[in-house]
């Protein structure tokens, strides 16, 4: 994953950049399988590596394929990034270590979902239980977000292009 990120920074062919970002998403998906998040891995592989790449390729086909080689000096952004990163690393020193079963995140509602979820809903997959049952309002709100984004994309692309280019991003979204 680290290598793919370096390639994204270095390459100037946007088609290659988009493809490598797809590979990056796929690697993230395999990583999620390793850390027990199978549902997230499905979604990341389908949505992150699939739909995002298609959307970006659609945008590339409507704009340009290659990036102009830059003239800006990368010094200031590098300093900003290093400072922020250093502050964040300092912040992690108080965090619980990886895989610690006594970390605060595992103490509050998660055990309730794990123990009561199957009794109250009859669905063995706890992620589905929380997503579709306990927090289904969140999921409904998410659908609203997607709907709004879809309408905004269609509105943006229909203006000026006379509706000709609407199909590309609008349909992929739906």
């Amino acid at each position: 994953m680290v290598l793919t990120v370096f390639l994204i920074v270095k390459l100037h062919n946007l088609f290659a950049v988009v493809m490598i970002s797809g590979i990056y998403s796929l690697l993230a998906a395999t990583f999620f399988v390793v850390v027990d998040a199978v549902d997230v891995a499905f979604t990341e592989a389908a949505v992150g590596a699939g739909v995002s790449t298609v959307l970006m390729l659609g945008a590339l086909s409507l704009t340009t394929r290659t990036e102009k080689t830059g003239t800006r000096k990368p010094f200031v952004p590098l300093v900003v990034v290093l400072l922020t990163g250093g502050a964040l690393v300092y912040g992690t020193l108080d965090m619980p270590v990886y895989g610690d079963p006594n970390a605060p995140i595992h103490q509050h509602v998660a055990p309730v979902y794990l123990e009561e979820g199957i009794k109250e809903t009859g669905v063995p997959n706890v992620v589905t239980v929380v997503l579709a049952s306990y927090r289904s309002y969140d999921t409904m709100g998410e659908v609203t977000v997607i709907f709004t984004a879809g309408i905004a994309v269609m509105a943006l692309l229909a203006v000026g292009a006379g509706g000709r280019r609407r199909r590309k991003d609008g349909e992929d979204k739906a």
Partner: peptide, 27 residues
Amino acid sequence: PLPHVLILTAIVVGVATLALGLAIIVR
């Protein structure tokens, strides 16, 4: 399971914002 649920939502919303950003770039 709780982070998994949150991130599932975040992935989908992320794609929605990505599509919107790309549409603005096309404009």
